[in-house]
Design a protein around this nucleic acid. Structure first.
Lengths: 343, 343
DNA sequence: TTGTACGCGTTATCAC
DNA sequence: GTGATAACGCGTACAA
């Protein structure tokens, strides 16, 4: 009874019954006298018995636990996703085990290993910036282990991916800028390796040509690090060097957009009068800035929720991974605020 | 071999050896021929054997997993803490299982129950705003189950708490405002139930009297909801009603501070010239605002890391919870930025 | 209505 | 050097 870890056996001894009777009584099996059930439950309560989930896992080869591998938690988008994941998992009776890769490939690899060792029922993954090959995923995937990817999803045949429509989001944002009369729109890009970056760039490009504007490759400027300082500096240099003056920025993420806003303010350009700015992700702080930053909202919590539902459905064999649509693309929503509205 | 879940027994059969030999060979026990070891490891690799952590947990009554119960993940401070927790846990060979209470008491209660059921080795807790009684903690604590509280910590005798020095942080912030010449300083308070709120208010009060200013209870204004809109509205009303014009705000959190900034801007007051503002927590966006918001930085990741170290030390009996200091108080750091600097 | 025996995967212990 | 057995906590087919 130490540590309140009373087992079925302990109850059995206390009542002079067999372990199986206790087990059955606790689960209201038919064929156990009400009297016994009552007694058993009473004693169980007294000894504060708690079923041992580990023993159950071992028996059923199921842990009712799902794993989550993300680059980092301290990130508005990812924490939103985790929130959605946790919510759905909890409501369906699953625990969530969380690992950050810290954008490192080796931690990503070792994480799935531990997860498998721990008899995790399935995992949700958004891979690291370092990840270029996917053997560590396909290997376990081929063994029938359920994995659902979200946001940063690999192009593996048969992999199930939940993403947002980055292309459309970027297209909308750029179109919006054009509709507000901006003509020289710079795109501050993200890490080239990630599909989300290339998709956003593609949306930007198509929106331009679709609206009769020229796409100029020198208008796409990568911000590999992803800090405010970086984009602020890049934009500042831009204004001092470029022959044609940019009048708008569509950034791959909100942090980049903030940098652009700061750089503009520094050289005395007014937003949105002189320069328009739109970000991507719609982090909380967008509406706290002055002027309020326009941004493309990604449904983070919804993404987490959807991905989790799919994963658990696969685990519980409610759907067959072979026969399903292998990608779910969620809609983004342009939040047009003061930073890009001239009219 | 289905699902790559080869067991020791499978290897034993394949090699015509006993399970115990395999177990020993895999762990390089003395008294096993090198030849056997080689073969065993080879076959294990081939069958891609992975030790079953669940079986191990059952045997050892240890899961090498710690639980984390927090109000919500989508929160800069808490996600920082989680990051620190995950980091330390990982480096010491522990998994992290995450649950959000969503500020609900009942979810908090059921969470510890599942954790105990899952043979979690110990938990880290920051309780919900709803939590007024602590029986659900003391009950398991008394059974010798390791719990370490962080940030929102209860006043239970013997409970181990890791917090930041809210009092000193508030004292510093208020003193800073005074030193900049502000005289009518309003405190935008947080939820009364939380000790962090009362401590911050106490720090504010003491800083005033310590500097020869009067503390007026009507200058402490609660913001129970905690949204930008709420504090914005409260501050706006303040300016229209109060006889004495406030010239500074020390908010219990950054969101409240932003609301104050917005309200001031709306009625044409310049920050920091007319009004000074300081927040608490130093969220990422503070330095993205215009003017940059001064705030009291709390070491979130460090707090998570420290709490985890203590918890694991207790679990591994490296320290005795009875004989240790039962509270660790981390220092805050005032980040004085443009929103409060007149000189 | 209740008890017995077995297995989930692993390892410590004793035996040969 | 290696094997057999028991035990961790639980559920269940089979017996009584």
């Amino acid at each position: 009874m130490k540590l309140g870890r009373a087992t079925i056996k302990d109850i059995a001894k206390a009542l002079n019954l067999s372990a199986s009777t206790i087990s059955r009584a606790l689960k209201d099996y038919p064929g156990i006298s009400d009297e016994t059930k009552r007694k058993v439950k009473e004693v169980a309560e007294e000894m504060n018995y708690r079923p041992n989930a580990i023993a159950l896992s071992l028996r059923k080869s199921r842990s009712f636990t799902i794993g989550v591998i993300i680059p980092e938690v301290v990130h508005f988008f990812f924490s939103s996703v985790v929130s959605g994941i946790e919510e759905v998992a909890h409501s369906r009776g699953y625990n969530v085990i969380l690992v950050q890769s810290n954008e490192k490939l080796d931690r990503e690899i070792s994480s799935i290993e531990t997860m498998l060792s721990n008899q995790i029922d399935g995992v949700l993954v958004s891979f690291s910036k370092e990840t270029k090959t996917f053997n560590h995923f396909t290997k376990v995937l081929d063994q029938g282990f359920p994995i659902v990817f979200f946001d940063r999803a690999p192009e593996i045949p048969g992999a199930i991916n939940v993403t947002v429509d980055d292309y459309q989001g970027a297209f909308d944002a750029t179109t919006h800028l054009i509709s507000q009369g901006y003509k020289n729109i710079i795109h501050l890009g993200g890490p080239k390796l990630l599909k989300i970056s290339t998709e956003r760039e593609r949306g930007y490009k198509d929106a331009l040509t679709h609206n009769g504007l020229d796409f100029k490759s020198e208008y796409v400027i990568p911000c590999p690090i992803g800090t405010v300082e970086e984009s602020q500096q890049i934009v500042a240099e831009l204004f001092s060097n470029m022959t044609v003056r940019p009048d708008a920025f569509f950034a791959c993420n909100d942090v980049g957009a903030v940098g652009a806003m700061m750089a503009c303010r520094e050289i005395g350009l007014k937003i949105p009068v002189d320069v328009g700015v739109v970000g991507f992700s719609d982090w909380q702080f967008c509406s706290m800035l002055e002027p309020k930053l326009s941004s493309v909202a990604q449904p983070g919590a919804l993404m987490g929720a959807k991905a989790t539902e799919i994963l658990i459905d696969i685990i519980e064999k409610k759907i067959d991974p072979e026969s399903m649509e292998n990608s779910l693309i969620l809609k983004t929503k342009l939040m047009a605020r003061d930073s890009s509205k001239r009219f």
